[in-house]
Design a protein around this nucleic acid. Structure first.
Lengths: 222, 222
DNA sequence: CTAGATTGGTCCATTATCGGTTCAGATAGA
DNA sequence: TCTATCTGAACCGATAATGGACCAATCTAG
């Protein structure tokens, strides 16, 4: 009888896949499936062939059959996609987060934390080489997030910092670096520090917004 | 036997490491592990090789295999810390990002994307069970980020969605769910959709801000 | 300081398991 | 009957695991 068993099995397999069976990403060998479905291996092969055609599954000789769709909503997949973030997108998000973080810091920081921010600012000012300045500049921004009293915000900045330290970014930052711009950044940092020490959230927000505007212009070249 | 034993062993070892076994920082010799897992040493070597690749472990000839000092600035560590994010911190960040995303969407979305947002809104309205509503509610918010024309922003929302789908959050959302609140959310979603379809960024931003205010009150109980 | 034990690094022939292919036959429906 | 499908079996080539040997670096006991 043309039972269409293969099609049925393909459907059953799809269901079991979407139900999360075989979360390790590996399907059982065709011979085992044949036993389980009480069917010849060729039939299972047809069924799996259908899954392979529509991309649900990938087969490798000598290794096995694997689920093709690594869950696009997994943490790993999300982070992997973030690694391709464009500078423009990144700057846009920084504009959303950093001024707010500065405002939070102005109201929430302890005096010790503010001193740490000021120290990072000063060290950055004294660093004349590009990697040294880059490091303390990042540290300056990070310490502001650190006193925003929002752990998640702080970790988001950590995330952005890591992404910005990867290869394509480093080249871009090196290209856009100049002594003149370094001094401009120091000026702007100083305004931010002043606002924080005055405990003035709106001034801190405004100073940070202005600073990010400069950074964006320099980095994106406009 | 190509059963991919090495990968399984690598996973088992990772689990035992994160469970705090070998706190002295030293792993057993490969030969012992081979005995323990009833497997050839070459197989264990492969497994440990995987751990070495992703930096969980360091091997030294003649000395042994040692747990690598966890780098607090690694992506993995950052993500791990994010898993402990408090609802209050999360809501604060949502307040920073989502209104902006809605405003971006109002100006940048294609008509097809806006229809997708509207569809998600409608489906959520029709879902009366809590998991179904929860899913389409998340989908609604996600589709707004998807048409913000900022890939990084979109992935950040993906990240937040994953964090919010973990165990402590699920309980909290279930507790705060009620038919009355579901209807209120639908009303607010409608206002957002309207603003998007009118291509009015400021109205979209305001509607989203109002909605998040409601969510925060319900979730944090104030 | 030296000899021996321990550990990871490398290599290789062998064996087992996997998907890929083919084919002759059985079985049902048009 | 003709056609499509499943059966059962054999064989191929790819890949992983086995089990053993030997090397080089390191540590320890005498």
């Amino acid at each position: 009888m043309p039972k269409l068993v293969a099609g049925d099995i393909a459907l059953a397999l799809k269901k079991r896949i979407s139900d999360g069976e075989w979360e390790n990403g590996r399907m059982p060998p065709e011979r085992d499936l044949a036993d389980e479905f009480k069917v010849a291996r060729n039939t299972v092969r047809r069924a799996v062939g259908l899954l392979e055609e529509d991309g649900t599954v990938v087969r490798q000789v000598g290794r096995g059959t694997f689920l093709a769709a690594p869950d696009p909503n997994s943490l790993a997949a999300v982070v992997a996609r973030m690694e391709g973030t464009s500078p423009a997108d990144m700057m846009e998000v920084r504009h959303l987060l950093e001024p707010a973080a500065a405002a939070f810091a102005a109201t929430n920081a302890t005096i010790g934390e503010l001193n740490a921010v000021r120290d990072a600012y000063r060290t950055a000012c004294e660093a004349t080489d590009m990697p040294g300045f880059e490091h303390w500049d990042a540290e300056f921004h990070h310490r502001i997030f650190a006193c925003s009293r929002n752990e998640f915000l702080k970790e988001l900045h950590n995330l952005m910092r890591i992404l910005r330290n990867q290869s394509p970014w480093f080249e871009m930052k090196k290209r856009s670096f100049s002594e003149e711009r370094r001094l401009a950044y120091c000026d702007e940092h100083e305004k931010i520090v002043d606002a924080l020490l005055r405990r003035d959230p709106e001034a801190a927000r405004a100073a940070m917004t202005a600073h990010l505007g400069t950074v964006a212009r320099n980095l994106l070249g406009r």
